[in-house]
Design a protein around this nucleic acid. Sequence first.
DNA 1: TTTAGCACTCTTTTGCGGCGAGTGCTAAAA
DNA 2: TTTTAGCACTCGCCGCAAAAGAGTGCTAAA
Lengths: 346, 346
Amino acid sequence: MADTLTDRSQKILEAIIEEYIATAQPVGSKALTRNQGIKLSPASVRNVMAELEELGYLASPHTSAGRIPTEKGYRFYVDTLLHISDLDSEQKDQIEIQYQHHGLHMADMLREASRTLSSFSHYTGLVMVPRLKATIFRHIEFIKLSPRLVLAVFVTQSGLVQNKLVEIDEDLTPRDLEQITNYLNQTMTGLSIQEVRARVVTEMAQEKALYDHLLRRAFALSSAALIDETSGDIIIEGTSHFLEQPEFSDLKCMKRIVQTFEQKSILVDLLDRGLESEGVQVIIGSETECSELSDCSLITAAYSGKRGTLGTLGVIGPNRMPYSTIIPIVDYTANLISRLLDTDND
Amino acid sequence: MADTLTDRSQKILEAIIEEYIATAQPVGSKALTRNQGIKLSPASVRNVMAELEELGYLASPHTSAGRIPTEKGYRFYVDTLLHISDLDSEQKDQIEIQYQHHGLHMADMLREASRTLSSFSHYTGLVMVPRLKATIFRHIEFIKLSPRLVLAVFVTQSGLVQNKLVEIDEDLTPRDLEQITNYLNQTMTGLSIQEVRARVVTEMAQEKALYDHLLRRAFALSSAALIDETSGDIIIEGTSHFLEQPEFSDLKCMKRIVQTFEQKSILVDLLDRGLESEGVQVIIGSETECSELSDCSLITAAYSGKRGTLGTLGVIGPNRMPYSTIIPIVDYTANLISRLLDTDND
DNA sequence: TTTAGCACTCTTTTGCGGCGAGTGCTAAAA
DNA sequence: TTTTAGCACTCGCCGCAAAAGAGTGCTAAA
């Protein structure tokens, strides 16, 4: 039982998957011979189909229905059969236009990205908000709101702004705050957040910090401000597209999926996986390692700012997704966002 | 045809509505006599039901089904029949507990409110983010990020923080910025945003602003910073509860509703209505003036900070909602949020 | 004024035969 | 040896009709 399929088997598998993606109906041998450039009789196709089923690429819901792809089938399709074309420039323009009216606000841009992903793919768009730890320190500022309350505003190189209210035990004069601000901005600018954190820890342990009152406060404040709270936030748009999918017409199953979305944490984990890797990733069905999402697939890609990866974005839909059209959309959007993040904030 | 119903009619109407709320099934005369403290025979009940139908409080889906309440029926129920009990202290505690771990961040608190509303009501929670214009100026700060880019951070009395990146045409020295900051904070603190805006407009028109370069810049910057961008944002949690409602088992109709939610603007309008009024508001079916939501009802209440109303929150679900249990939940949550906003930020 | 009885209506369920799509197998054709 | 035509078989889906069930309105009696 050769694990390598013959050319002919591959062609037929491809045709079946594409037909199934288009129609959501089990594909029969006859339908195949009608449609495409397959020059075989139904009987021959049947033989191949039986073989593909035995190898685990196809399954039949019941005897008298056609075949549907298994996860293994989709995986093989995505890995070796799929030829992804580039977006034509018209589509690129259409996508790009969406971002024209969004100014400098990163949050708006990411929301728009999620929306665009959803509306161009007709599935559900996902955008992970940049993890703070993946970003570069640019500026920190402390605003005193009341004797015991300071607002820390922290800006990353890529234009992400994080606010945090910090309670303090002792009154700090505006002058103190200014000094702290200056010190931190001078020492930390250009470092990654991880480096900044490390630095804060080591310096706080060092002797001179013990004696320099102000310095100690500076570190205390900054470490409070840099706790990554927004981390793990995710922007989901177009959940309603799920309601269009015939495979989810069962309300029970539909509800399980939507609830999983609302929880967000599982999606965050899935998007996190894409952080390390280059290019577009496809996660199919049970590869999600989440039983609720076992009939869903994700197409994700990382986006990056000036220095390194910031986060990931993508699309989630049923296993039966038109990968060939969505992969370029995700890819292009990720690149576009990266580009916008690089140019927007000098 | 007296518009005032007899006591008996009211009792029966109430029983029908409550039965229908509990079961989602058309209510027949027999079912009624079985259940409650109604001491009449089915035949008598039928007479009353026929009368109630003629008056428009009930409708029958078809001859051989029971009756279901009309909007007019619900409205009457909510307005005059309903006796809302207070939450018992156990429930209050349960709700309150949810907020313990949320520190000073307003955004987190509001998200939690939406989540709590949803999980305690088993419907969909809505929280409108405070409209900037309804808030009081507390502090503004400008952070220079690059020669042409300034980050404006604006804090309201109630602890809402808004960031805005502002592009400027001419380089401002840190000294300039500091002066501008000081000037604005001294003049504007304690004014409502509307007053601030008005002030900026009038002062910019005045002569002295024409000559004072710095002043002009200060106004330009602040007016750019105070454009209300987050306005109209809304936090929706628990959409999946809609999938549980038998009345929305039709996917078409379900999808229309979810899409309406995703658009948000319609919900914002609906929540806006509650801004003016005291206490809990109920909007039933077509009162939403939105055809997609004609089978939905909202229960909303305004929450407020130190000075005046900030926004509204509530629950949206099918017309057939257990108003008597949800109204207290919404009411209590709104008060709780108001209380938290008042105490949190000295 | 209330209730019991009854005929009537209309939906829902159930059972059943037939149609259609698709399969696997076998034997013939290429 | 590979491909194809033919054929019996399986099984879901559709439509129909009959039966069941729930509820109503009306009338006449309590």
